[in-house]
Simulated assay, not measured.
Amino acid sequence: MKALFLNCSLKSSEEESNTEGFMKDVQKHYETLGVESEIVRLADYYVAYGVAEDMEDGDEWPEILEKVKEADILIIGTPLWLGEKSSLATQAIERLYGSSSVTNDKGQSIFYNKVGGAVITGNEDGAKHAAASLLYGLSHIGFVIPPNVDAYWVGEAGPGPSYLEAGHGNDFSKAAIQRLAYNTHHVAKMLKEQPIPAEGNTL
């Protein structure tokens, strides 16, 4: 089983990312469950703006989309800026939406029988708002959303320590990380054994 993390931090890999630190803590649980996982940081790629599979020469989204197609679980991670998910997180959902009309051999969206989740880090409010936006977007294009797969950590109101500076969150965030990992794994395993039938579910 494979999980793909899309890190929508606005920082490239040259800088430390709290969102990536959070994702790595999810990966630890996936390792114990036998799930192979990879983190892709969107800021390291040139992703064109638009709602299509392939936008223009040099667009590297198709390379990322192939990883999404191969994955059983997709986790989108974002920092919070002014109470919102990052612009790259919005762009990721838009580009995924551009492939929602592409079908598998049963006539279903290619995202059917895949599981989605969201992780959010920040120093301000907005985690639940960002999670709601991400999880609705994934559900709308065909991903299955298990319960309790919006793991997040935000610091106290106002400037303060970020996730990594705070020692990888607190008991609340650690429990949320564990639920996300186990619930996405469990439902993904169920869908492998018994996929959503095509009857009544074709595009």
Rank of each mutant, 00 (worst) to 15 (best):
L164A: 12
E124V: 00
E156Y: 09
D105N: 13
N123L: 14
L135D: 02
G158I: 04
I120N: 04
F111D: 06
S101V: 14
K128V: 15
A127M: 08
K114D: 01
V154C: 12
I120L: 15
I120H: 09
L135H: 01
V115P: 03
E156P: 05
G126Y: 06
Y112V: 12
E124L: 08
E124A: 11
N148S: 13
V102M: 13
G160M: 00
I145S: 00
S133C: 14
Q108D: 03
D125M: 11
V154P: 00
E156F: 12
V115I: 09
A151D: 01
E156L: 12
P146I: 06
Y163N: 06
N148D: 13
N123V: 11
A151R: 06
G126P: 03
W153K: 04
Y163F: 13
A157H: 11
S133T: 14
E156C: 04
E124W: 03
S139P: 07
A131I: 15
V119L: 11
A166Y: 05
G116A: 05
F143G: 13
S133R: 03
D150W: 07
S109R: 00
S139K: 11
S133M: 15
G122C: 07
K128S: 11
E165M: 00
S100M: 09
G160F: 07
Q108Y: 04
D150S: 07
I110E: 02
F111H: 07
D105E: 11
P147F: 12
V119F: 06
E165Q: 11
G122Q: 02
V115F: 05
D150N: 05
W153D: 01
S109N: 04
E124Q: 07
I145A: 02
P161V: 05
S109W: 03
G107V: 08
G137I: 10
E124T: 03
A127Q: 09
